[in-house]
Amino acid sequence: MRFGKKRVRYHHGHDHNSDHIHESNHSHGDSIESKDEKTLKILLVHWVNHNESHEEGFREWVDKARHMGKDETANNIEKAIEYLQKANEMLIEAKKHM
């Protein structure tokens, strides 16, 4: 096995460094499936953690919006937080089935 760093670009436009494992001595099909499965397990955890980091920022802006008198904006951000939490529940459930 060879270990290295791989820069991965996700949908939200910024980069993350990811440990990347190169498999050897496997048939081509096994190697790809194994690599993809490992990658998906890592991504599921990453996505939950990443969403949680966004949630912290959202909560901060709920407070700021309320302070500005933008209650409807704050309410919508709070609703987005609820959806983010639901998305995390689904990602955690997906990981259980890996």
Rank of each mutant, 00 (worst) to 15 (best):
N49T: 05
I32M: 08
S34I: 12
K38D: 13
L40K: 11
D63I: 08
W47N: 11
E52C: 01
S34A: 07
D30W: 10
L40G: 10
S18M: 14
G57A: 06
M68Q: 08
H14A: 05
E52A: 08
L40F: 14
I21K: 06
I21A: 03
E52T: 04
E55I: 15
K41M: 13
V48K: 00
F58C: 04
H11V: 11
K5I: 13
K35I: 11
H54T: 05
I32F: 07
N17C: 08
H16E: 14
K38M: 05
S24E: 12
K5T: 15
D36V: 01
D19N: 06
E52G: 01
D36A: 07
E33M: 07
S27K: 05
S18W: 14
E52F: 01
M68C: 08
I32N: 04
E60A: 04
W61C: 03
H28T: 10
H16M: 08
H50E: 15
K6N: 13
G57F: 06
L43Y: 10
N17E: 15
K64L: 07
R66T: 02
K38C: 03
H67Y: 15
D19E: 13
H20M: 07
T39S: 15
K38L: 05
K64V: 06
E56L: 04
N17A: 10
Y10M: 07
S24A: 08
H16N: 12
E33S: 10
S24V: 10
G29L: 11
I21V: 09
H11S: 12
K35C: 06
N25G: 04
S27I: 03
H50M: 08
E52N: 12
G13R: 03
N17I: 08
L40R: 11
K35S: 15
H11L: 07
R66F: 00
E60I: 11
G29T: 06
N25C: 12
E52L: 11
V48R: 00
N51P: 01
N51T: 06
S53R: 09
L44T: 02
S18F: 14
D19L: 09
D36N: 09
W47L: 13
V48Y: 00
H16C: 04
E23S: 11
K41L: 10
S24L: 08
H26R: 11
E60R: 09
V45H: 09
W61I: 08
A65D: 00
H14V: 05
A65W: 01
H28S: 07
H50G: 03
D63Q: 05
D63F: 00
